[in-house]
Nucleic acid binder design. Structure first.
Lengths: 264, 264
DNA sequence: AATCAAGTTCCACATTTTGGAACTGATAGA
DNA sequence: TCTATCAGTTCCAAAATGTGGAACTTGATT
């Protein structure tokens, strides 16, 4: 009866988005009945919602009647990504950090309790191509996430943390609000955060938060590498450069994002 | 009075998407009044639509009350992209084509009169990073576009072509349905298409269409390079490999996409 | 032929959306 | 200081949309 159905207060749009999300989140094409179960909507309603989503190109219906994500999402995301001024401002800084360290550099933005990766410069030898852009990871177990959280005013931080479900991805993942909040106190003092194999084993990073004055944006950058190649000492050595890059991005963004319209 | 307002027949969802599109398409943050003009919706209605879009995370409202694309689009697109089985099947073939040619290789899917780029393997020396994925270009002036069109049954081809607005991007761009349809006859015979600097000057490509039996998907791949480095002879020399890769992707996809559920 | 499951259509009912108009509040000019 | 103007927000009766249970296809299975 209450399988999923995150029908937010947003009237019809909310229902449509919940259904869309249900299809996009699932792996593989979803048949009507699958979605019916996941969404908890009544048959008639769901049927209409699905046709509308298909008409809009947000979903595609296959020959066997099952539903898949449509291309419209990709094109919308492309346009919003390529027109994103903040990413644009940050890019050169990501590049120089990459040049300095030789490791993968990420730019992420905080949304609620998640950080969303918005740009990435990586070592060419990597297998996976572009990818990862648009990926959302929990804030409590990523360097950028913890760094970004450290910028929030305490009440908001606590509100967000209190809603977190601490899933133990690795033996080093934070398991409680207490330890996380304690670490955030340190992060505030130091100006940077580490990920000590908290999200994936054998993966470490240093991250620094980005504050853009005059904006509600909270973000961060990180340098990430495999544990066998990147020691904690190495990360510490890089932390200064990461903090400086983050600060530079923040200042530049405040200037270029603030005013308003046009751009180069 | 009738500035834009592509209010498709999809009821409320259609209106919401039209507004979203208006904001995403624009460059830079849009204020209420800007959107009011672009969308043609009445004030009250627009206001509610915008709040709903913001609540859903599809838009973000800045301090100065203007609206920007929200991160939800990126995360939705990421999930649908990374879960896309067709792209997955094609990727190794893109890689080998890249290894063979040393030039950029694209995978694109036809949607109406546009082709949407879904994956890309490029020479590392390029400036722009991942990007371009999700970008939509007109079918009539791109190699993949023309190749994909050549697979359509004649009536559908004509229906789509008749709706095209032939914009002359370069001196070599098709200017009319006649020349395009004529070229498509050749493309059908040869099994591959060229882009002879039709979309961008100094950029050429060879493309081959991908047909996936049992699916309505129409797609294509291409090898693209700058004119100074890649002669038409060179492209012709590569055309066989491109056709073979396209055929291989089509067959593999028919097998792996057909059945249904599971994963790798 | 009968049964069952999956998907689609229908339609009286009710919630949501609609959109003109009135309201607030900031900014500018007289 | 006092209007005038403009941008954004709120309101609410009327209208349109969305709702969802039930009946109806379709097509496979026994």
């Amino acid at each position: 009866m209450d399988t999923d159905g995150e029908t937010t207060g947003t009237g019809t749009l909310g229902k449509a988005m919940a259904v869309l999300e249900a299809v996009v989140t699932a792996d593989g094409p979803q048949r009507f009945t699958d979605i019916l179960a996941r969404s908890g909507q009544p048959r008639g309603t769901l049927h209409r919602l699905l046709s509308h989503l298909v008409e809009e190109g947000l979903l595609v219906q296959r020959r066997d009647l099952s539903y898949e994500p449509g291309l419209r999402l990709l094109t919308l995301a492309y346009r919003s990504w390529s027109g994103n001024r903040f990413r644009d401002v940050a890019e050169p800084h990501l590049r120089s950090l990459h040049a300095l360290t030789g490791e993968t550099v990420h730019l992420g933005i905080l949304r609620q309790a998640e950080i969303v990766y918005v740009d990435k410069v990586e070592s060419q030898q990597t297998v996976r191509m572009s990818s990862q852009i648009g990926k959302a990871s929990p804030a409590y177990c990523t360097g950028i996430g913890k760094a970004a959280l450290s910028l929030l005013p305490q009440p908001e931080l606590e509100r967000i943390v209190s809603g977190m479900a601490f899933h133990a991805f690795t033996p080093h993942t934070h398991r409680s609000a207490e330890t996380l909040l304690a670490e955030i106190v340190d992060i505030r003092r130091q100006g940077h955060a580490f990920d000590r194999e908290e999200h994936e084993v054998e993966i470490r990073c240093v991250a620094a938060p980005i504050r853009v004055s005059g904006s509600d944006l909270t973000a961060g950058i990180s340098v990430t590498g495999p544990a066998y190649r990147v020691s904690m000492e190495q990360l510490t050595a890089w932390s200064g450069a990461v903090r400086e890059a983050a600060a530079a991005i923040g200042e530049e963004a405040a200037i270029r994002l603030g005013p308003g319209r046009g751009g180069p």
